[in-house]
Design a protein around this nucleic acid. Structure first.
Length: 255
DNA sequence: ATGGCTTTGTTCCAAAGA
């Protein structure tokens, strides 16, 4: 089984790249963030033609998430109990025996912004929900754009980023709290090269110089962690013409 | 590198992203 996540920064713009990547990588499930599409505009037919079913919840201009799957998506959920949120940031579904959650965590903008408080509250509510989900689903994967670089080794220049949004201590604590309910960062289950990132600023220099952050993650329950065989970032699409600013993250499992 | 791009929409600028 292969699971993947990718912030596409507009599925309307990136659909050709997504279809090509599905053909190339053949993931069983691909979680998408920042689709920026209202539901009636979601490209259901194009994905069906590639053999993928979709569960999605979107809005104009901002946010929007989706799960694409070769197998049927069951028990789709798009709202988190106890979390009042008009922004479309969560979609969950069951594929085979795996419960898959796709998250687009708020960016936060700056540490002194109201959006930063919203980000921390949002992460707290999602943590409480996921704690319950772990009790209901032994095979749970939580994938998405977390907008948190968990450690300094996930940052190209820790000194330059110190205290900033995406790396600040409260955000890292909120990310750790997600792990504390019983999830593991699949990427860190394995030895990894240094300086692996999943996002690079637009602008010609950032990707070429690997000035990036690792903010897209696949978190897994203990049962899935035991079956996990690899977790990698595929920087290929980031080098394409008119790329998303994020690269896909993939994890493979023995069952 | 603190946006030096990119996307979207009450579009010819501004807001937001990360």
């Amino acid at each position: 089984m292969k699971l993947a996540t990718w912030n596409v920064n507009s599925l309307n713009v990136r659909l050709p790249q997504v279809l090509a990547w599905l053909d190339e990588q053949q993931p069983d499930v691909l979680a998408l963030q920042e689709t920026k599409l209202e539901d009636h505009r979601f490209p259901v037919a194009e994905l069906e033609a590639r053999g993928y079913a979709a569960a999605y919840t979107g809005q104009k201009t901002y946010n929007g998430v989706a799960l694409l799957s070769r197998q049927p998506l069951r028990d789709v959920q798009v709202d988190v109990p106890g979390l009042e949120d008009e922004q479309r940031r969560v979609v969950a579904a069951t594929v085979g025996s795996v419960r898959v959650v796709c998250l687009y965590v708020p960016n936060g903008q700056t540490v002194d912004s109201p959006k930063y408080q919203y980000k921390l509250e949002w992460l707290g509510a999602v943590r409480d929900w996921l704690a319950g989900e772990l009790g209901r689903h032994s095979r749970l994967a939580v994938m998405g754009d977390f907008n948190v670089a968990p450690e300094d080794r996930d940052v190209h220049s820790p000194s330059r980023w110190a205290g900033q949004v995406l790396v600040s201590a409260p955000e890292r604590a909120a990310f750790s709290a997600l792990l504390d309910v019983g999830l593991q960062d699949a990427f860190r289950l394995f030895p990894q090269p240094e300086r692996v990132f999943s996002w690079w600023n637009y602008g010609r220099l950032a990707f070429a110089r690997n000035w990036g952050l690792r903010i897209d993650h696949i978190l897994v329950s203990p049962t899935l962690a035991a079956a996990c065989q690899s977790c990698t970032v595929d920087p290929g699409p980031r080098a394409h013409e008119r790329p998303s600013d994020h690269a896909p993250v993939l994890a493979t499992f023995s069952e």
